[in-house]
Nucleic acid binder design. Structure first.
Length: 273
DNA sequence: TTGCAGGTACGCT
DNA sequence: AGCGTACCTGCA
């Protein structure tokens, strides 16, 4: 068990704002959480975060929960905009997790599925089929597999990913051809170009992978929730193209667009806006 | 029951 | 260049 000190951090807000899919609530402020092949039981009490995990490397978890970033500074930046000042009140404990690139790649291709429960199901089926079983806390978990294999379309169909089966196959074939080798050290523009070459990755999914899997925190993925909420906030509730919404976000939120996106998403799903 | 939602590809104009 | 529809699945 490790104990970390946190500031401006809420475990529940951070997990429940749509950036991570493999977690399960045990009770208030306590969750099972999985990333890659790691299983953790995480508990927050006041400003302390308790982590019991198959990997208890402190630096890993500090990085994963982004505990060294100064969120007061970021939130302070947003207070210059009256509307954002309201928005950040709802999710002021959100951190942007630094998740695994491979896992984000597959998860966000699946995410053009539907609601979060369905996305979770697809990922869990994928892990059950291709990952390894591991028993921790008297419970069986499945790890997220290394991507060094090529699945069949039939196998992927069993994960209920629907028509995204060929997209995932495309991504994994390219992955195994070394297409993504060294992606972490490329420039953001180069990373973006590579991602967009994969079938099934368009602007939105690309931005999610950049933001959550490659720590590009100035990206602003626009999904239906963000679109609705942004329209209400800045466009007089009128139908507005994603392109225009992204321009507005850039103008208002740079260099912290990713954080803004999370706060807005959270406020939006809380139906407060 | 039908039909809709989710993001992208693809075919049409 | 922009628009409409297909893709698959679960759920109202």
């Amino acid at each position: 068990m490790i104990v970390l000190n946190t500031k401006n951090f809420s475990l529940s807000q951070t997990l429940e704002c749509g950036q991570i899919f493999r977690f399960e609530k045990i009770k208030e402020n306590e969750y099972f959480l999985q990333t890659r092949d790691i299983v953790a039981r995480v508990f927050q009490e006041n400003e302390k975060l308790y982590i019991e995990a198959t990997n208890e490397n402190i630096d890993f978890w500090k990085n994963f929960f982004d505990l060294d970033t100064n969120y007061s500074e970021i939130m302070n930046f947003f207070t210059k905009d009256e509307k954002m000042k309201e928005i950040i009140k709802y999710g002021c404990g959100i951190h942007i997790l630094r998740q695994d690139f491979e896992e984000m790649l597959i998860s966000f291709i699946m995410s053009q599925n539907k609601q979060i429960p369905q996305i979770k199901q697809c990922i869990n089926l994928f892990c059950e089929k291709y990952g390894e079983k591991i028993t921790v806390f008297d419970k069986v978990f499945s790890t997220f597999p290394k991507l060094n294999f090529t699945p069949t379309l039939e196998g992927l169909k069993e994960c209920k990913v629907g028509f995204r089966d060929k997209y995932i196959l495309d991504a994994m074939e390219k992955y195994n051809e070394g297409f993504f080798d060294g992606i972490k050290i490329l420039s953001e523009e180069e990373q973006r170009e590579k991602l967009l070459k994969i079938k099934g990755i368009g602007e939105k999914v690309c931005n999610c992978i950049l933001l959550f899997g490659l720590a590009r925190t100035n990206k602003f993925p626009v999904d239906v929730w963000i679109k609705k909420t942004m329209q209400k906030l800045y466009f007089d509730d009128k139908e507005t193209k994603n392109e225009i919404i992204m321009e507005k976000a850039k103008e208002l939120f740079s260099p912290y667009q990713g954080f803004a996106q999370q706060y807005i998403y959270f406020a939006g799903i809380m139906k407060k806006i």
